[in-house]
Amino acid sequence: MTRYVLHRVVGAAAVLLAAFTAAFAVLYLLPSDPVSIMLDQSSTGGYVDPAQVDALRARYGLDQGPLQQYLGALGRTLRGDLGTSVASGAPVAGLIAAALPETARLAALALGLAVVGGGALATAATWTRSARLRGFLLALPPLGVAVPTFWVGLVLLQVLSFRYPLFPAVGNRGVASLVLPAVTLAIPLGATVAQVLAHGMGAAWRAPYVETALAKGATRTRVQLHHVTRNAVLPALTLLGVLVGNVLAGSVVVETVFSRQGFGRLVQSAVTTQDIPVVLGLVVVAAAVFVVVNLLVDLAYPLLDPRLTRGRAAA
């Protein structure tokens, strides 16, 4: 068991290191010159002072060879130093730390709504015997995946903030300001959850062990609760990492639409100002969140699925 844990932890660390490397390679080593991008943004007017270029190069270590740059950045990152923002000069780690809590609240609520809503929809769609109801319910997830998040946000704002002022349109104040962004974010997530679960539950309903259970005299409700749900939820757990990653990515659009502060807004402003150190830091943090969630799922999985425990002995 310790071997398994160790194996998974090392694997997760390797993926994270590779993700950092890939992001670094894209942002610093592509043919475009980071300094001219930075200067484009920071200085006004077209004139670029060569001395200023050199100073900047030295400051960001860009006068060194690519390997030294990479190793330096990696070393600093491992110590928790993600560099400084070009636009504001503030430390990147501090910017991200300040932005994360707001987004974490939003993400948690959105994920909760998505799992509850998506799970309920999938359960109802596979449990019902009415083909019409099933058809209607199963038509919803593709719709949820297809509608653009920014558009849903704007329509919700229009109806529930402007026409009927039930929720505040902008800002980070209070639970009420969290509702519309969370619902907006939950729609594509919930649709994904519903699609995966409905697929898994549909397969479970067609499995012969369900026929066995029905032949025991179990009702459909009992079969759904005792056999179908557990068999369908287990494989769907591996989706959690992707969902959390999508929440972070989705926050870029949603926080922009609802003018909230947070992780996504930081991404949006960093990309707009082409603030490369900040973008690198954000990408690495997002990858880290994904990797950690996946690691937790991997570690929990053998405890939940009896087929993965050792000792398949048929004497």
Binding site: P208, Y209, E211, T212, A215, G217, T219, N231
Partner: peptide, 23 residues
């Protein structure tokens, strides 16, 4: 649901998949 299992039993075709794998 009161008849199946009590008055009427079924021995299914493929024992490999006819038991719930997680119970």
């Amino acid at each position: 649901s009161r008849v199946r299992g009590a008055r009427l039993g079924l021995v299914p075709q493929d024992p490999g998949v006819a038991l719930d794998p997680v119970q």
